[in-house]
């Protein structure tokens, strides 16, 4: 088994902030917009370095998305920053019409996604955003797993032409992917090789999948662990190749099973290579207040839940 070490817990939103800072220095066309959450999104440094390229729009997300769409006309690359809920549901039609349908090069950067937002509760814990965004034609949907990957993705999407939804989170979590990684949009990252089961994970659940794989390994079960940072376009080839080998799959995400990564994988498999699948995801529910750990435990989004799902799916082969 490959060994992955946590080089020190960091929040993925800081990966975004640091990536944006780097982009600011190397790409003059990058502009940033924020809706009264500059500190939460870690955009302070970009703002300090480039006040003329930073736009504080106030608590007005719809206006922010529209402005961002307009700024692309003439060659700017706008990065919008607010919480995931206010980056998607709040502004869905603005994104749909002015960004996606109009084919604008806007990077919608969304922090505090999912249950791990914690105590603020369900009004802020969106578990539907991947679904909302992946349903939009021509939208790229990325959900990164740690600080390093979020930083790399932030930098990479500036060079990609087209609308992108970049999803990350609030809490400090394990940082285990390489600092110098070459982030390739749409390309799955194989983290472990195994033969008994495929675990396809995204976001904060990738680290949990690695922990689960270690536990399973001790019991003689080997798992392919695949980090799907890009949910759309999905790396069909990587998933199919793995499931053809293992014969079953567990998908894991901090999102509703409706509309999430799991459904995308199910669609792929049902049309190309039917195989038993178990879903680690929330079960059509809103979240609630609590600490991130308590919530991930209560809603079954952790390594032990993945282990249980693996045992179940293997029995169904």
């Amino acid at each position: 088994m490959k060994k992955y070490t946590d080089t020190g817990k960091k929040d993925t939103r800081s990966g975004f902030g640091d990536g944006l800072t780097e982009l600011g220095k190397k790409n003059k066309n990058v502009v940033a917009l924020c809706a009264d959450l500059t500190g939460s999104l870690k955009m302070d440094e970009f703002k300090a370095n480039h006040p003329e390229r930073f736009f504080q729009v106030g608590i007005a997300e719809a206006n922010m998305i529209g402005m961002a769409a307009g700024m692309t006309i003439g060659g700017k690359i706008p990065f919008t920053g607010t919480f995931a809920n206010f980056s998607t549901g709040r502004v869905y039609d603005q994104i749909r019409q002015s960004v996606a349908y109009s084919g604008k090069n806007v990077k919608i950067c969304a922090s505090h996604a999912g249950l791990t937002l914690g105590e603020d509760g369900a009004t802020h814990q969106i578990l539907e955003d991947i679904g909302l965004m992946k349903m939009l034609p021509e939208m790229t949907v990325i959900n990164t797993c740690d600080y390093n990957q979020t930083k790399a993705a932030t930098i990479a999407i500036a060079d990609f032409e087209g609308p992108v939804y970049l999803r990350f989170g609030r809490p400090k979590v394990a940082n285990f992917t390489p600092a110098d990684q070459n982030f390739q949009i749409g390309k799955a990252v194989q983290l472990q090789e195994g033969t008994d089961v495929t675990i396809v994970a995204t976001g904060h659940l990738v680290w949990e999948a690695l922990q689960a794989a270690e536990t399973l390994n001790e019991k003689g079960i080997t798992a392919d662990v695949i980090n799907i940072h890009t949910i759309k376009p999905l790396d069909d080839a990587a998933i199919l190749k793995s499931v053809k080998k293992t014969g079953c799959v567990v998908t894991a995400e901090e999102h509703n099973f409706l509309g999430g990564l799991g459904e995308s994988v199910a669609r792929l498999l049902s049309t190309q290579h039917p195989a038993p699948q178990e879903f680690i995801a929330t079960n059509d529910t809103f979240g609630e207040s609590g600490t991130p750990e308590q919530l991930m435990d209560k809603y079954g989004l952790n390594a032990s839940a993945i282990v249980a799902a693996v045992n179940k799916v293997i029995a169904r082969k």
């Binding site: 206010f86 603020d120 369900a122 009004t123 308590q294």
Partner: peptide, 28 residues
């Protein structure tokens, strides 16, 4: 703001707290 509480971070009808008639938190 504790797990399983009716006193959510932002007021909600979801847990049935008397006195609250609509969820709020997302502003406006």
């Amino acid at each position: 703001r504790l797990l399983n509480s009716r006193l959510q971070g932002h007021p909600t009808t979801h847990e049935g707290l008397p006195g609250v008639r609509i969820a709020s938190g997302s502003l406006g």
